[in-house]
C-alpha cells in the first residue's frame, strides 16, 4: 500500500470507524445508528465516572475532527502547491463546529471538553501529517 493509502486508512477511515463504534455502543439514539440496529445503550452515560463520560461524549467529536483535518491535509499533499491558509481554515471549522451546535440544537450546552477535543485533534493531525509532509 502506498504511503498516502496508509494515511487515508489510519488517519481518515480508522478514526471515523472508532467514532461510529462510540455512537453504536454508547449513544444509539441517533438515526444513523438506528438505520443499522435499534438498541439500548450498553451503559447509562450519566452513571459513568467523569473520564469515561468525557471519552464517550468528546471522543466521537475528537474522531470526527481528527479525520476531517487529516482528510484536508492529505488532500493538500496531492496539490501542486501548498494551500497557505488551510490550517487556519481547518482550525476555524473544527472549533467553530462545536460552537455552531448551540444554534442548531435547542438542548445543546457548550462543553469545553468538546472544544478541547477538537483542538487536540487538529493539533495532532497538523503535527502528524502537515508538518511531516513539509519535512519530506
Amino acid at each position: 500500500m502506498s504511503r498516502t493509502g496508509k494515511q487515508i486508512l489510519f488517519f481518515i477511515f480508522l478514526p471515523l470507524l472508532i467514532g461510529y463504534f462510540i455512537y453504536f455502543f454508547f449513544r444509539p439514539n441517533y438515526w444513523f445508528v438506528q438505520l443499522i440496529d435499534s438498541r439500548e445503550p450498553l451503559v447509562t452515560i450519566n452513571d459513568l465516572p467523569g473520564f469515561e463520560k468525557v471519552f464517550i461524549f468528546s471522543g466521537s467529536d475528537f474522531c470526527w475532527a481528527f479525520s476531517f483535518s487529516s482528510a484536508l491535509f492529505i488532500w493538500e499533499s496531492t496539490q501542486y502547491q501548498r494551500v497557505r491558509y488551510l490550517p487556519f481554515v481547518v482550525l476555524i471549522i473544527v472549533v467553530g463546529s462545536e460552537f455552531i451546535q448551540h444554534i442548531l440544537t435547542a438542548d445543546f450546552t457548550l462543553d469545553l471538553w468538546d472544544v478541547f477535543a477538537a483542538l487536540l485533534a487538529f493539533c495532532l493531525s497538523f503535527v502528524l501529517l502537515r508538518r511531516n509532509n513539509e519535512k519530506k
Partner: peptide, 26 residues
Amino acid sequence: SKYSILLLPIIVLLYAALYIATSYSV
C-alpha cells in the same frame, strides 16, 4: 492531479453530512 481540486467540495460535503447526522438524536 489538476482534477484533485474537485475532491475538496466532496470532502467538505461528506464531513458536513456526518456532522449533521451526529447532531440530531431520535
